[in-house]
Write a protein that binds this DNA or RNA. Structure first.
Lengths: 190, 190
DNA sequence: ACCTGAACACCGTTCAAGT
DNA sequence: ACCTGAACACCGTTCAAGT
């Protein structure tokens, strides 16, 4: 009847997730995670044999949850501008929450140090985002040109990630907001 | 007569710079640097007492050299589109050179782990870039509104950084190129 | 002025051992 | 099935000691 007091495995993942969003994959420490969970580091290795396994599991769950959330947004509205606003808000919220970054955004910066299984999940996250943006850009758009749409979707994804990176670097959310306004003014988000 | 065979201090900095651009501040290792330079890690500490000192010195020199290069561009041309193209090329070249990132871009992602002296240099780098972009955007622009120009300059800086991050994450330069084209199409770089 | 070896508390990882 | 202690080679940092 597993109504147990939350799985150790789940606790490891949630602690690790916050750690990576705050400080990156390289700064994720098995010993720190273990201490926060109340267990020894060798025990963390029991659940996730290597750091790559843990990173990949984090990215996989993060992508899955993100995809579900985005699908929910699209099920509730067909208003392009409104959906774009909500999209920008997701990345803003990470900054509000203790100056965190998108898990996959910060890991992308650490590309060189990532095991292959983690890289694969980062790619999937990007793909999920870009495909959702293509759907949003397509709403009420009769002019086809799906190649241009995908290019624009990629650009929006990149631009939002860049705004998050910039704002985090200077620790000032208004830098994020200003960048997003400028994107809107330029018509990048339309 | 110091025509000596390059300073140890200079060698430490050039090795470290490449290391950070490739793998980030957290992955910068005194012992690895020492091995590459042919010296012991304690000796690296003689030149740069802490990792923060080394990181700050790297960022300072990087910003100074970048500022000088940008000034050179502006001295040679007053063509807005051409200057924007050259700006985008700078960040592209880092990717071409072994999938590297802008030194300050990757460090911005590691904001949480940076000592204050390094953060200050990151901020200065952003400021130099944004101010240069304001100058470029002002060329032949009579409509004033310096607040809007600065906001747009920040957005361009963020968007270029985001494109670099995305392309690095998927290890594909064409992702960078496509994002830049989409920025141009949207009029973000004009 | 510049470098070193040795020590300290950290890190991921492994493994035999416990329950 | 889950956890642990101890070991390994790493890490930044410090410091007394060498030239």
């Amino acid at each position: 009847m597993n109504m147990a007091t939350t799985d150790t495995r789940q606790e490891i993942m949630s602690v690790s997730k916050r750690m990576v969003q705050a400080r990156g994959y390289n700064a994720l420490s098995f010993r720190e995670v273990a201490k926060a969970v109340g267990v020894k580091s060798a025990s963390v290795h029991y659940h996730f044999p290597t750091k790559g396994d843990l990173g990949a599991a984090l990215a996989r769950r993060y992508t899955d949850e993100g995809a579900a959330y985005l699908d929910g947004l699209l099920a509730n509205s067909e208003d392009r501008a409104l959906l774009m606003g909500r999209y920008a808000k997701i990345f803003r919220n990470a900054l509000v929450d203790d100056n965190r970054m998108c898990l996959c955004g910060i890991m992308a910066a650490e590309h060189h140090d990532l095991p292959d299984e983690v890289r694969a999940e980062i790619d999937r996250f990007s793909e999920v985002n870009v495909q959702w943006l293509v759907k949003v850009l397509s709403l009420g758009n009769t002019q086809g040109d799906s190649g241009g749409l995908k290019r624009k979707a990629r650009a929006i994804y990149a631009a939002i990630g860049g705004a998050q990176l910039l704002a985090r670097g200077c620790g000032d959310i208004s830098a994020y907001d200003q960048a997003v306004v400028a994107y809107q003014e330029a018509g990048l988000l339309g």
